[in-house]
């Protein structure tokens, strides 16, 4: 009996509005679906996995080992205790994590350019979906990928001489979610008006790499010339790296004395994330395309 009834209601009919979707189902459901799509697509493109994880690893090992002993960062207090000095591999480690997040977040949001070119995006834009849920689907997708890879890399921390506890692992994960949302939002904002991925690479080299270099990831603000110091203070990535350092060395202020305080780093990270998401949604609504 029941089966017969189902069949009856099955036939396509203009009159039969399928269900009566609620307001949330036009926001949450599309967002979740687009989010999931990002992850599935990523896992089906092996070269992306290798590239995103491999680049910072090579970076970290080659540059970190290259500088080797020529870089020794002493305690701000100038103590001679050998336990308070830091090798470059260790100094470079938190910056490498942020670099992984940066690479993954940026390279996954530029897929919006491919989505547009391959035609997928047009159907999404013509669907009764809030624009913010389209942005968030993309951004959370890329955040998931960035976080997954960063956490894998984080497991190497002991090799750099950084002790890991479950607490620091969770803490870093929490901070990285915020960092990844912000950087994905930035990626979206840059990629949205672009027609080709070539243009994006120029932005990568002219804007994003300098942002990362001037973040305290590769060298500390203390020894830099004054204009570099200013640039670093204005750079949101500086606060990303600082937040990660604070959490990694939680409870001991051994290597965090020169950094902006944790609360400020966290605040700026959150504000930056909110701002890039809002601006991305606005760009999408205002878009004439």
């Amino acid at each position: 009996m029941q089966a017969a009834k189902t069949v009856e209601t099955n036939l396509t009919g203009a009159t039969g509005v399928a269900g009566a979707p609620s307001a949330e189902s036009y926001w949450l459901l599309p967002m979740a679906s687009l989010w999931r799509r990002e992850v599935v697509r990523f896992l089906r493109q092996r070269s992306r996995v290798v590239g995103a994880l491999g680049t910072p690893l090579v970076f970290w090992v080659v540059i970190g080992s290259g500088f080797g002993k020529s870089f020794v960062l002493g305690q701000p207090g100038g103590s001679d205790d050998s336990g308070s000095t830091m090798g470059y591999l260790e100094y470079f480690f938190p910056g490498s994590i942020v670099l992984i997040v940066l690479f993954t977040a940026i390279f996954s949001t530029i897929s919006i350019i491919e989505d547009r070119r391959e035609g997928f995006l047009q159907a999404v834009l013509a669907a009764p979906v809030r624009r913010s849920s389209i942005v968030l689907g993309k951004v959370l997708g890329s955040t998931t990928l960035a976080l997954g890879q960063a956490l894998l890399f984080l497991l190497l921390a002991p090799l750099a001489g950084i002790g890991l506890t479950l607490g620091t692992l969770l803490g870093v994960a929490g901070v990285l979610v915020l960092v990844a949302i912000g950087l994905s939002g930035l990626g979206f904002l840059i990629a949205w008006p672009m027609d080709s991925t070539q243009g994006f690479h120029a932005v990568m080299n002219l804007l994003l790499m300098p942002m990362w270099l001037l973040s305290g990831a590769a060298f500390p603000a203390s020894g830099a010339s004054s204009w570099v110091g200013v640039a670093m203070a204005l750079n949101p990535v500086t606060y990303h790296v600082a937040a990660v350092r604070h959490v990694l060395y939680w409870g001991s202020d051994r290597f965090t004395g020169n950094l902006p305080p944790f609360w400020l780093a966290l605040l700026i990270t959150v504000v930056f994330a909110g701002l890039t998401i809002a601006l991305s949604a606005r760009a999408m609504i205002r878009s004439k395309r």
Binding site: P30, L34, R41, R44, Q45, G119
Partner: peptide, 26 residues
């Protein structure tokens, strides 16, 4: 659409399911 608005990396069913979600069906 003239150029199908399908995600080439997804399966046929995944494409349809995603579309359904965009229209509030699940």
């Amino acid at each position: 659409f003239q150029d199908p608005s399908l995600d080439e990396k997804l399966t046929v069913l995944e494409n349809l399911t995603n579309q359904g979600h965009l229209y509030g069906l699940s």
